[in-house]
């Protein structure tokens, strides 16, 4: 191109190996310029930014820039985006949040992390529940599925209670009761079992107080609906029998069913709880009104 210098005219270094001479050709000017600019950049960078490690600490640089500050400022930036939503959520009840499409959308996205931390270990990431842990996505609620009920469950936690009947009911009574209960949702009547259920036999079982005479449960006291297809614990004959014999949360019974949801009232903020309630409601099982 423009520079037509003969490379063989360059200065000879005097080094020669088997007839191959080493010449001293300077690198192109633009290359060297690039190198000098890099050195200047390096010096400027070292002066402005933290760079040289010392025995105790490091040089801080004139700009005072740190990664932690950068993290804090980006965190503040995120918080400032969220602040208007958080403010609205603080002022509104969970029900009002649910009715506002924008806020409920924010709540769903925002509650995802908290749900994953606090709820998913037992209830599953999609609210599908697990053995011994209630499904949040279905339409059966032990303590009521309204948005208020859900908020209350998260805030105060829940502790199930059912007495153990292994001491009070006879073997026959228990078997009759199991047959009656497992027949409830298949439509098979079992009159001796019904008598046990209503407490009309010698054992005087006290089922109706919580489960109601129609066995449809009572959300106010956490009485489970026994007539539907969803079982809080196992729905097999053996499972039902175990629940009757050993009850729920009986301290002195090793075989007892455990049903304990921790309290989140003090651990999560009110806003977080409202957002969680919206998320749980939106799993699909929430009851309107």
């Amino acid at each position: 191109m423009a520079e037509k210098k003969d490379p063989y005219e360059a200065k000879d270094t005097g080094h020669e190996w088997d007839g191959i001479r080493e010449l001293k050709n300077d690198p192109p000017g633009w290359w060297m310029t690039g190198g000098y600019i890099s050195i200047i950049f390096l010096i400027v960078y070292f002066v402005l930014y933290p760079s040289i490690p010392l025995v105790h600490g490091y040089t801080k640089g004139l700009l005072g820039w740190t990664q932690v500050d950068e993290y804090k400022s980006s965190l503040a930036e995120i918080m400032s985006v969220r602040a208007p939503f958080e403010e609205k959520i603080a002022k509104k009840s969970a029900k009002e949040i649910l009715a506002d499409p924008q806020l409920s959308q924010f709540a769903l996205a925002s509650a995802k992390a908290v749900f994953g931390d606090k709820c998913a270990p037992c209830h599953g990431s999609g609210g599908q529940g697990g053995p011994g842990f209630p499904t949040l996505a279905d339409d059966e609620w032990v303590y009521g599925g309204t948005i208020e009920g859900i908020t209350e469950s998260i805030t105060g936690g829940r502790q199930g209670m059912m007495p153990a009947y292994k001491a009070t009911l006879s073997e026959q009574e228990v078997n009759d009761l199991v047959a009656f209960i497992s027949g409830l949702n298949t439509g098979k009547a079992h009159d001796p079992g019904k008598a046990v259920f209503l407490g009309q036999t010698a054992g005087q079982a006290d089922c109706v107080t919580c489960h109601g005479e129609d066995a449809k449960g009572n959300p106010d006291v956490g009485g489970v609906n026994l007539t539907d297809k969803i079982w809080r614990f196992e729905g097999t004959q053996e499972g039902i029998k175990r629940t009757i014999l050993h009850g729920v949360n009986q301290e002195d019974d090793k075989e007892t069913r455990k049903a304990l949801m921790p309290t989140f009232g003090g651990k999560l903020s009110e806003g977080q709880i409202k957002q969680l309630a919206v998320k749980v409601f939106m799993f699909g099982g929430g009851k309107k009104g």
């Binding site: 599908q128 279905d138 297809k229 969803i230 699909g284 099982g285």
Partner: peptide, 12 residues
């Protein structure tokens, strides 16, 4: 939905 794939409701 990936989780859960299906849910059984109270009426089966």
């Amino acid at each position: 939905d990936r989780q859960p794939l299906y849910i059984m409701l109270s009426d089966g």
